[in-house]
């Protein structure tokens, strides 16, 4: 299995297409960082326009943690699409090239073949996430420094101390990894039905877009079922940046406000991964390969 996984990773990283996502992430992150570096003060004024009359902001609110938070909010909506570029191509791309039939004539079970391909696309998603962490978190920390993080929501502002943030980012990236692997497994599932990459890539993107729209719509019909959509749980990483409140309504550092809800969301995403991958293996094992 390990040998198969190495072969799949070798193939993934030999393809020029793989690096599009890394270049795209670098471009987006750098643009955001340059924009904030040049025009960050105005941006902060805009963010704080409703509260600056009542609060004194001390320290450096425009620090690396804050910049990374903005980057993650921006990227974690679009990165799934980049992940789909590779995961949805894993089987369909082989079918399109005509190499799938060659792989199946090798003395490897179809289950192992599929699992190695799935793990390769999951590892690709993880490496992409590490790339985002390096550029978005570590480079931002270097360029903008570190201080407390101000998490402005529509009904509250959460202020996290500088020494209470880094571990939250580690957790958030861990959660994002589960979310991205969910997308990878969905793309992978669609991939087994197609003989070219475009169909499953478009299908994966369409599902994410449609489900995201349904998640954000406040229509009663969808209210009862939208917690079942995996897209509802993809932004669960933000839960790590909320703290518990004590009886006086004061934040307790080092805590997560609703850890069970975050863990439940992670569990639902994991369930989706198992479901999509299991279904892909079940169907592919019985599939006649005609390509």
């Amino acid at each position: 299995m390990w040998s198969l996984l190495k072969i799949e990773l070798f193939k993934v990283f030999k393809r020029p297409r793989t690096y599009i996502a890394f270049i795209a992430v670098w471009a987006i992150v750098t643009l955001i960082q340059v924009a904030i570096y040049v025009d960050g003060a105005k941006y902060m004024d805009f963010v704080l326009k409703d509260v600056k009359d009542n609060f004194d902001v001390i320290g450096n609110p425009l620090n690396g943690y804050f910049v990374c938070f903005i980057i993650l909010q921006t990227l974690l909506i679009h990165v799934p699409l980049l992940v789909a570029l590779v995961s949805a191509d894993m089987i369909a791309g082989e079918a399109n090239m005509g190499t799938l039939r060659l792989l199946i004539t090798k003395p490897i079970s179809r289950t192992k073949l599929l699992l190695s391909k799935f793990f390769a696309s999951a590892i690709y998603a993880l490496i992409l996430l590490i790339w985002i962490a390096i550029l978005g978190l570590f480079v931002s920390m270097l360029v903008f420094g570190t201080d407390g993080l101000m998490n402005a929501k529509s009904y509250e502002i959460i202020i996290l101390n500088g020494n209470d943030i880094f571990w939250r980012y580690i957790c958030a990236f861990g959660y994002a990894a589960i979310a991205l692997i969910t997308v990878a497994s969905l793309g992978f599932f669609f991939s087994i039905f197609a003989e070219n990459s475009l169909g499953p890539i478009v299908a994966t993107m369409s599902v994410i877009i449609v489900f995201t729209i349904l998640t954000t719509l406040d229509i009663p019909l969808f209210q009862s079922v939208k917690h079942l959509f995996f897209t509802s749980h993809m932004i669960g990483w933000k839960g790590f940046f909320e703290m518990k409140l004590d009886a006086d309504g004061v934040s307790i550092p080092g805590t997560i406000r609703n850890l069970p809800a975050v863990l439940k969301s992670a569990g639902i995403l994991t369930l989706h991964i198992v479901l999509f991958t299991g279904a892909a293996i079940y169907i592919f094992k019985r599939k006649d390969v005609l390509s």
Binding site: I7, F10, K14, G98, T99, R101, L102, L103, I108
Partner: peptide, 25 residues
């Protein structure tokens, strides 16, 4: 086996192709 068209990974060299399929076997 060779099945119809000789479809192989276009982005690999002949040596890499052969090495890859040897490992897969």
């Amino acid at each position: 086996a060779v099945i119809e068209r000789p479809d192989l990974y276009k982005y690999l060299t002949a040596y890499e192709t052969l090495e890859l399929f040897a490992k897969m076997s």
